[in-house]
Design a protein around this nucleic acid. Sequence first.
DNA 1: CTGAAAGCGCTTACAG
DNA 2: CTGAAAGCGCTTACAG
Lengths: 346, 346
Amino acid sequence: MSEVKRHKTHKKANISDVAKKAGVSIKTVSRFLNQEKYIREETKEKVISAIKALNYSPNVQARGLRGERSYMIGLFVDDLSGDYISKVQRGILSGCEKEGSHLVVEVLSERGSAAKVRDLLSCVRFDGVVLTPPVCDDMAVLNALRDAAIPVVRLGAGIPVPDMALAEIDDYQAARDMTDYLISLGHHSIGFIKGDPSHGSAHERERGYIHALQAAGIAVKSELIVQGMFCHSGGREAAATLLALDPRPTAIFSSNDEMAIGAMASIDAQGMKIPDDISIVGFDDHVMSQIVLPPLTTIHQPIEQMATEAVSLLGKVTKQDKSMLQTRIFLEYDLKVRKSAAPLSC
Amino acid sequence: MSEVKRHKTHKKANISDVAKKAGVSIKTVSRFLNQEKYIREETKEKVISAIKALNYSPNVQARGLRGERSYMIGLFVDDLSGDYISKVQRGILSGCEKEGSHLVVEVLSERGSAAKVRDLLSCVRFDGVVLTPPVCDDMAVLNALRDAAIPVVRLGAGIPVPDMALAEIDDYQAARDMTDYLISLGHHSIGFIKGDPSHGSAHERERGYIHALQAAGIAVKSELIVQGMFCHSGGREAAATLLALDPRPTAIFSSNDEMAIGAMASIDAQGMKIPDDISIVGFDDHVMSQIVLPPLTTIHQPIEQMATEAVSLLGKVTKQDKSMLQTRIFLEYDLKVRKSAAPLSC
DNA sequence: CTGAAAGCGCTTACAG
DNA sequence: CTGAAAGCGCTTACAG
């Protein structure tokens, strides 16, 4: 029977069509759509069947224009490449599914681009915005967002900012745990590859490394700490620097996996074997970390879950009060012991 | 002076505010926004300065509701992981920048999910939708899109469909070129790792391989063609199968890089050296292909550019006529000779 | 070249 | 529990 209507179905039904078919006012249909109370069960049934018959879904643009929700979640990133953003998007999307929202991706490649943010926010009214590093630590962006009174969740950010929620793992503690793990394996000379300082996590992880050494009574040597900028080539070069040291470290803690994989290439190029000649560990549990040889010991971050929780938090903010934005969500991390680190043999 | 207004600026300006400030009607402002002709230079200036002073940007939701453009481009994918989608998104975003549009990402993980597509399309009115494999070959999705009369560009799709544009490289010819290259290196026994058959490109690339062999008068052996499903583990297993053959092939053509990298792991595990003991080549120019050791010889696809052109095509469709959707854009590919394939030495 | 009116599809605020 | 009216911020179609 819907076969017959096929031709008319071309123009999609709107709320009035549904109201007419159900024999109620559009306000009643709207009540159902927004799950308001005070709608008789009997009336509700009529609306439901009208919606089904007409294959109706409310138009987001119209709802967003009038109502207080837009059903649009913004994701502001500085760059789209990499496993991290993919995972974030997957997490957001699964949160959106639950909330009935849609994901709008925007790139903010320049630092401090407040103007673009203001523009963006006056163009499209977001229910909330999710920020990834390093954008989540860009004060210009944060201020523009605050001025526009848009609910924000920052992912894996360093410094807390009032009225903006945070979803993160304890980068400091995770890095401490990882360093402790290497120490427990007998390593005392541990090189550290730092990440991009515009990412809050870079500092936290370095702090964790330093404190773990200090707590174990091991001297922190500045020549063992090398910048790698969180990228593959940075890791490769940093490892080369560390390997040139005399004596060279017996283990390397790279503060992300991408750099660790770069470092592995360096180690390989020098004809050394992992973990026999040198141990290496990473951070993030990048897709590649299980694929490289040997598989990389690393810290697993539940990035997808972080992003999903960010969206559901955003959903609560719009419906209830803004106090939810004080929230700081800490998620569990997990030290994945694989094959790239071994007890010190000498 | 904008400092003084700061407090009132809180609520963003709308078209009426601009009109009032400029001393014109909202229609005139609208004319400027939509770059219509028939607006006196002098009037235009007044509007421009009012817009600047008020820091005004038109609201996308409102424009989308009334007008024929929504300024929203949909990207429908089946899965978010991987380098490919990142590149597609980057390309779309750079196209969106030019068109003043926004990217909305939607996941269609189930095959044949026409219901979800219909729903999506009645929720949000897209100016156009970009489809990636394998969604771009899902007839249920295609039909739903056609029924809704939404302009579509399919990326790297196999079978042409009326009224839907295609942006692709010539997968067939590229695979032929790559096979010819291996043949020119002296290889006659070339294993082929096939991709996921739900992707049109999988068949095209296989065809290219087969025809190249035939054209060179080399017998096509079915045991040399193994399924790898376009994924890392598939490639690893397929390579293991190929390496167990007696005699084993002297080269392997993996129809994407992800599988090629898996195959490299297999080869490595058997203690063989690339390219000394066996040559291997891939397809796609994945980020990892330059990073693995040795760097992988592969076909570079201009994925970003494909996506950017898709968006600009979509922009033309909305403004002008629908005939643009007959377009089939072929982009240049590039055989990147790196270190993973060498002349047959025996 | 410019403007006043109507309307896109909803939700809000108000009545009953 | 239900509805009629107004309005969100624009663009369309029509007048001048």
